[in-house]
Design a binder for these strands. Structure first.
Lengths: 356, 356
DNA sequence: CGGTGGGATTGGAACGTTCCAAGTTTGGTG
DNA sequence: CACCAAACTTGGAACGTTCCAATCCCACCG
């Protein structure tokens, strides 16, 4: 066993003696390159490269009193939604750019409490937290504020209107995009199927609804509107009711991809060919949309991830918080459900569009 | 600012002096309770509790040369599948029981390479890795073996038949469960819609297919079989072809929930009421199944997570690897698609079953 | 040619934990 | 009552890094 030589990973001292400088100089090369003369710097960097040296996370964390990690709560609503995996994927992909790593935690079966937050904080496992699905009476923001622990929320903190450490998608803009696209494609009237305002998150529901109202009214294409909760069965019934008030050549903009799927089903039920007879636009850019050939408003997941990570980073660095919550612009991904040449029905879905 | 008092988290020395013992005794209380007299132990534990002390992850990791973390690769196939979120949720929920935390990594857009593995290892950020979606020519197992880094795979390592550090669901047993359930519910003939054997993972496809063959033949209910890839459009066509050879009162067992959804669509296309006229069973226990009222074979996600985490834990502890890969038993979750009283069609889905 | 200033580099100390070897107490025995 | 072993407890050292203060070196100026 060559444990002593090959097995042990190189430390800063190994690099230092290989380059003929001291510990501290190597540290400076990596953390404050300006402090080191170019000649020395290059020599050190060459050895860093040759030995494959990387600073130990544990030693760094101990010395700096900072874990370089962000806790991410994965609870039931987050895991079981269509966008959960997309948010997680984006945060994971963007974390390295912010010099942090993620630590997911939470029991997918139990409703969130602060216990896990307290435990992870005490163990110095993370410096800050990111979470989603805030609700009224949510204990988490209060607890984190009280303990002065940085955090950022995906979605408005409507239980704490004064807080600005959140990012969300601009649903108003998203529905504008949807309506503009539908008009562009030549659909005559644009209806809307969204969420009731008394539902869990009235701001999001209101936001998307107003987007449709403003755009459709502005363009003179406003049709009927309906509401439903985020469940397939009831949504199909609501979609069915809405379609009673729409005719061939009309369209429906939806508050989510799941609702859009329900519209596909309601259309199929009455023999409407989606695309040709009826335009449908969803919201989320989820797997459901890709599978079913739904045109959808794609949330800017990477931008959201960047904003959330930057927000906690700034709080850690100097305690600054954003001047306001961030509403980020979504984009529209056209597919068959708004293609007039297409005859999409729920039971003859098209394959997913080829990836760019 | 009361930084100096309230802000600083308690350390082992604080606990020690509060309890009137030394550092080491506190450490022993937490790590080797037997070494400490009960009287002392209780006194120390009381102070631990009072001060809310938890050992610093960084200090522990530095001293023990162990991060207490497991890297989890989230790549495109993992994130974009129906089971990805379920596997992740289970691993997250079970990690604390194994005294580790997870560190997800990976770029959802790029195909996996060993670069990220090397980087995380060098930084001592993780001790081991868990990943899924192995494929032939996968560089990861070879690289990890070469560097003697523990790992465990979700899914068979069919590119390395000699390796045993994997866990997978017993698809054979799953399709037995499905067929038995369908016979139990009084369906006459049971067909099968699965994956072609030349697809990415022939072992899984073969496994599930044989389960159907054995059970259906054994019970004398074997019907026609078809194959399709894991895409909704082609799957609906394949399901349609299969239904040509089945009549009312028959059933289809499927290799995945997505394929089962395709069967729902094909049934709707020809006016068959799923449940009453046609039994359908999916595989995965995914969100898709819950939404669409599909009876499904649920993968034992928590057991899988436990096995994977235990496997890497054992490798870390004393280098032992399992004597064989683990095939874990799934369970069956009945829903409307095998309820003879129900008239489920793809466009009139039932609400998700109430959670237990 | 000595002094000065400033940038580059250095060694000591500390972050919080656990291992190790040595120390102290406890309880039992001759 | 003295002694011994076992049980329990203790302080020093080390894990790898970065902060801090001190030192070194060099060019430039008077």
């Amino acid at each position: 066993m060559r444990s002593s030589t090959a097995r042990r990973r190189a430390t800063i001292v190994d690099v230092a003696s290989a380059a003929g400088v001291s510990r501290q100089t190597v540290s400076n090369v990596l953390n404050f390159p300006d402090r080191v003369r170019p000649r020395t710097r290059d020599r050190v960097l060459a050895e860093v490269d040759r030995l494959g040296y990387r600073p130990s996370t544990a030693a760094r964390g101990l010395r700096n009193q900072r874990a370089g990690a962000v806790g991410l709560e994965l609870n039931l609503p987050t895991c079981g939604s269509d966008i959960g995996p997309l948010v997680l994927g984006a945060l994971t992909a963007r974390a390295p750019a912010h010099d942090v790593h993620l630590v997911p935690f939470g029991d997918a079966h139990v409703f969130p409490t602060v216990a896990a937050y307290r435990d992870m904080t005490r163990r110095h496992l993370v410096d800050a937290f990111v979470f989603a699905d805030t609700h009224s009476g949510d204990p988490r923001p209060d607890w984190l504020l009280e303990h002065e622990i940085p955090f950022a929320a995906f979605g408005r903190l409507y239980s704490h209107p004064e807080l600005t450490c959140w990012a969300d998608v601009d649903g108003h803009r998203g529905l504008e995009l949807a309506v503009e696209h539908l008009v562009d494609r030549g659909y005559a009237t644009v209806g809307y199927l969204g969420w009731p305002l008394h539902l869990e998150d009235p701001a999001v529901a209101e936001d998307r609804h107003r987007g449709w109202v403003d755009a459709a009214t502005g363009l003179g294409v406003a049709g009927p509107a309906g509401v439903t909760d985020q469940q397939l069965g009831p949504a199909v019934e609501a979609a069915d009711a809405l379609l009673n008030e729409l005719g061939p050549g009309d369209a429906v903009a939806c508050a989510s991809d799941l609702i859009a799927l329900a519209v596909l089903y309601a259309a199929a039920r009455r023999g409407l060919a989606v695309g040709r007879d009826l335009g449908v636009v969803g919201f989320d850019g989820s797997l459901v949309a890709r599978r079913h050939g739904l045109t959808t408003v794609v949330q800017p997941y990477e931008d959201l991830a960047d904003h959330l990570l930057r927000t906690v980073h700034d709080q850690l660095l100097d305690g600054t918080v954003p001047v306001a919550g961030a509403l980020l612009d979504p984009t529209l991904a056209p597919s068959s459900s708004t293609d007039r040449e297409s005859e999409l029905t729920s039971y003859t879905p098209v394959p997913a569009p080829t990836r760019r």
